[in-house]
């Protein structure tokens, strides 16, 4: 017999809980003020503007370093989230006991190349990462960041990441 569908509240709690555990496990993301918006399995990273992100006070413009960090955090969280999604949806990992300390290890950055396409304005930034290839050991991720207009990205990045060793 067919199982009745899970109540939507249960589904949301599980997914939001897992995402919170993942994002709260990165102190530097919290330091910069990065948070994530979730629509199903799709994540959008948000970097709310704050004065301490400024790198050029004359224009003014965001510091290239915070933009690089924003893109790198987006890529790592996307990789961690994609792994976690399968684990919590299949029930292999119980999302209700996930915390920053019990989380599976995060991928490590091997290299990242950031293209600065236009000056980052003193306002909120958004980023989405796409996993181009994810193998057992290495992953390649592309990230794009924009501010007011989705079609006018202010930065993009490609990075390679070392995936943590899994038990299976």
């Amino acid at each position: 017999m067919k199982q009745p569908p899970e109540p939507v509240q249960v589904v949301k709690e599980r997914r939001d809980g897992a995402l919170a555990a993942l994002t709260e496990s990165i102190p530097y993301a919290a330091f910069l003020g990065i948070n994530f918006d979730r629509r199903g399995d799709e994540l959008t990273a948000i970097l709310p503007f704050s004065q301490m992100l400024i790198g050029n006070p004359y224009l003014p413009a965001l510091h290239g370093g915070c933009t690089a960090a924003f893109l790198e955090v987006s890529a790592i969280v996307e990789l961690g989230w994609t792994y976690l999604w399968d684990e919590i949806e299949s029930g292999r990992i119980d999302a209700s006991v996930l915390s920053p300390t019990t989380l599976p290890p995060l991928p490590k950055t091997i290299d990242i190349t950031v293209d600065y396409l236009r000056a980052g304005l003193p306002r909120d930034g958004y980023a989405r990462a796409r996993i181009i290839r994810s193998g057992r050991r290495y992953a390649s991720v592309r990230v794009e960041a924009w501010q007011d207009n989705r079609d006018r990205p202010y930065a993009q990045a490609t990075g390679h990441f070392l995936m943590p060793k899994r038990d299976s």
Binding site: I26, Y28, A29, F31, H63, G64, G65, A69
Partner: peptide
């Protein structure tokens, strides 16, 4: 600085903070 940590399980500084330092120094 503990606020710049990328992975609390190891205490290692986030790559993004190193990027900011590299970008500033290069500039």
């Amino acid at each position: 600085d503990s606020r710049f940590i990328g992975d609390p399980q190891t205490g290692v500084i986030h790559g993004g903070a190193v990027s900011a330092l590299m970008d500033t120094c290069a500039g």
